[in-house]
Every structure is written in structure tokens, then in C-alpha cells.
Design a protein around this nucleic acid. Sequence first.
RNA 1: GGCCUCGUAGCCAAGUGGCAAGGCAGAGGUCUGCAAAACCUUCACCACGGGUUCGAUUCCCGUCGAGGCCUCCA
Length: 479
Amino acid sequence: MKLRNTMSGELEELVPVVPGKIGIYVCGVTPYDSAHVGHAMSLIVYDVLVRYLRWRGLEVTYVSNYTDVDDKLIDRGAMLGVDPLELANQNIAQWEDEQTRLGLMKPDVRPRVTQEIGPIIAMTQEIVDHGYGYVTPSGDVYYRVRAKADYGKLSHRNIEDLRTGTRFEPGEEKEFPLDFALWKSAKPGEPAWDSPWGKGRPGWHIECSAMSRTYLYSAEGGERFDIHGGGLDLIFPHHENEIAQAEAAAHGEGQVFARLWMHNGMVQRDGEKMSKSIGNVVSAADALERWSPDAIRLYVLNSHYRAATNLTDEAMAAATAAVRRLANALEVRGSATAASTIDVADTRARFVEAMENDLGAPQALAVLFELARTINRARDAGEDVRDAQAMLRELAGVLGLALSRDVTVQLTGQEMRVEAGTLGVEITHQEAIARLVAERTEARASKNWARADEIRDELDALGVMVEDTPQGPVVRPRR
RNA sequence: GGCCUCGUAGCCAAGUGGCAAGGCAGAGGUCUGCAAAACCUUCACCACGGGUUCGAUUCCCGUCGAGGCCUCCA
């Protein structure tokens, strides 16, 4: 598989550090507020990467963190009058619930800064010991940017470029404006932990260097792991600094740490940046309320992960309809009278080819749509499409699309299939619906079309539509 | 100001130096009691101006426009 490496800017073959295994670290959120669709997009991208690699037989260790103590959390906590650590807990709990609803796999490890203080202090000490960090009289510890000749290699900047516009803030004890905090001494009332430099807390970037080391370095792999991912906006300074810290701790100038850096593009809303000030931020909760998990995922996968995507209501409606199209191709209708002529191996090969090329989910999706059309056509021709449907379900599953999650309900003695999952809508009034559907079936049998149509309107009022198939009526949530 | 992306049909969005994927929407048709679903047909002068080339949407330069980073950000 080839992936675009931000470090080199080139497509690079993914060669596992340890054969057969892949270690991935993805930067998660700082939970000072609810998560939004941008966070969802990011995790969907890496979720699909992990699913794909596992499907291809690799043993993947997937780590994604929470930065649960940080300036913004402290500020927000103070504003709301709540304990910042408690605020983080609440937002993490909400976000984890949303992640589950979005169909995101749980990472193998979800480390939190507050639970990794020991390893963070240890790494900070190593950086200081190796001459890349220094301690100030107030008990802050800074990273000495100028100590590292290749600082800026990820974001392709040099220290002179970066220095433009920076200056010392009053009261800072830095040697150089670009130096960044590894450890911050505690102010009164702030969350704090004991350290060799007094009470304090970790700086922003150190946690990821320390936690990826804890969970992804291995005896065979040494001081490196395979993939580090996150949003494009994290390239500088966050990821640049992670590299600097990890390499300083490892006492190396050559590239160690993550072998391949992946960055996903940003989600825009109606062509504009999502921002609090514009008031156009779509929260994960908003998104889950309006659109199905599959529609959100399909929307994300429809564009390449590195590109910025433009979230519009129309695009989401299109994604919703597109999900339905795939789900419809999985329905069993009629009985087959002929063997299948569909080449599922070819479909699978084209899917793999698309995914191998820098996670080409848009093209992989196109392969699925083509398969759906082929299935529908073959089904109409009376072919046995079960193998093709199984392939469609399998490949959609690799992308994390659940497609239909049909439930069959047995009510008033009549079996009726109710498809709910594809639209993420709960079906209510099941008994009334079942009764009306049964009555409509009778009306249709006696060619009482007026009554049949009237019942359709009544069902519409209950939020569902009824579709007649050779196997009987199917009830779906109304669009 | 510096670094870096991107500008493709009504909308979302792939992609390639040699007649432009896919989805949604639209139009016509088949099927259906009617619908729905499905199938068939149809729908693009690839921002603009130069250049390189036998040939560019694809490479290079410029213009305009959008976005990211340079301070917190998925």
C-alpha cells in the first residue's frame, strides 16, 4: 500500500517496521468542548485505514489519545466554574458515545495525559539530560529548538522563517521565542503533579511523544513505529514538536519516531471554515441527529482524505440517498433462475487497487456503486446474486459502512420487514404501522386502490413509507 | 509578509499528457393498479492568460479566487 508521507511529500510504500504488524498513533481531541464533524472526519479516515489494513491481514495496534489537561481546558473550566479535569471527563464520555454511534472502532489504547504523567516526566527529563531542554527559575521546562539542526523538517520550514513575527511574551523565561513548553509550573488552583521541577503539568506536545513511545515502540521496532496521523492543522507546531521531542529523547538526529505521517484535510461548511465566530460549526451530535452514521461516513469517504471537504445540506442529502442505493442492492428479491455471471474477484481486485493507492476511498466507493448496479441488473435478469451481495457487504464493511441493519418485527400475526438502520431513524408506532400494512395488503388484494392509497397517506403521517415488492410490503422511514 | 494546498457538470467529488470515475439532482423511457425501488438512455468547452509538447484538464510561469499553517485547533 502506498501512502502520501507529509515528511517527504511523496507517495511511499507502507513497509511495516515489524513485518506483519502496523502501529498507528492518531491525535485525538483536547476535550474542552463537544466534538464536531471535523473530528469525526479525522477519525473516520483512520478508522477506515485500520479496517483496511486488518482486512489485508496485518496486525494493527491503533492508539488515539485525549489531551485531557491543557490551557484551554483550564480556561474553559474557569469560565464555566467547573473542575477542568471533570469537564474533560464529561466531554470525553460524550464523544466516546458519539464515536460508537458513528460506527468508529474503539482504538486499542486511548491514553489520557492525566494517566500518563510518569512517562511524560521521564521523557522530559531525558530531553533535558540530552541537552535539548532547559529548566527556568520558575520551574518551567522548555524545549531548545535551536539545539536540533533539522527542526522544521516535517512542516518544511526553517527556524528563520518561523521566527518572523514571533517575540517574547512578557514574563517568559525562554532562551528563544520558538522554544516551547515541555512542562509548565502550576499556578494556584490549577491541576498539578509533582515533578523534579516542582508542581506542574505537561506542555501541549509532550504527551503524544511519550504516549506513542509507551504504546507503540517495541523491542523489534526500536524507537519508531509505522504511522502517525492527524489533521493538517496539526503539522505545525504539534507534530513538528512531537518529532523534536521524541528524537531528542532518543538522542538522535536521524529520522526516528513515526515512519510515515498522514494528514487529513479540513471540513468546511458551505464553503467556509467552520468557526465559533461564524457560528457554523456542526457538532458531532448535530450531525448524528440529522444524518445517519453511514451517510456521514460515505460523505467523508467520497472525497480524498487529504482534500478539504465542503459539507452542505445538499451533499449530505446526496450521501443519504447514495447509502440507500448500496443498501437496496443488498435486498433479496425474487428467486434466482440462473447462475451468477458477476466477476466478484475482479471487483475485489479493483477495490484493493483503489485503496492501495493512498487510501483511494472515492475510487473504492465507485467500485462499490458499480457492483451495486451490476447486482441490480443481474437480479432483474434472474441471476443468483448472493455471492455478489456478500462481496458488496464485505467491501462496504471494510469502509465501515454498515448498510442496512434490517430488523424483522412480528406483529399482529404478520411478518413485516422494517428497515431502519440505513437512515438512523427509530421506527415508532410499530403496532399501528403493522396493522395498517396488513389492512392495506387486504385492500390491495380486493383491488380497493382508494383505500390502499389512503393507508399509504396514513403511514406517511406516521413517518414511514411502504414499498411493494414481490416478497410483500417493506416499510422504511420516510425520507 | 513567509511556507503549503486547491480551483473539474445544478450540487458533492475522483482522475489522467492522447476521446473526463462515482454519487445526488434533472430530462426521456421500461416495469408497476398507482407509487417506490430497479434497469436503459441522456446531462462537462476540467477558473483565466501565456508557455513546453505531435497532443495538456493533467507539466511550467503568471493572474484571479478559495483554504490550511506561521498563535489554540481534527
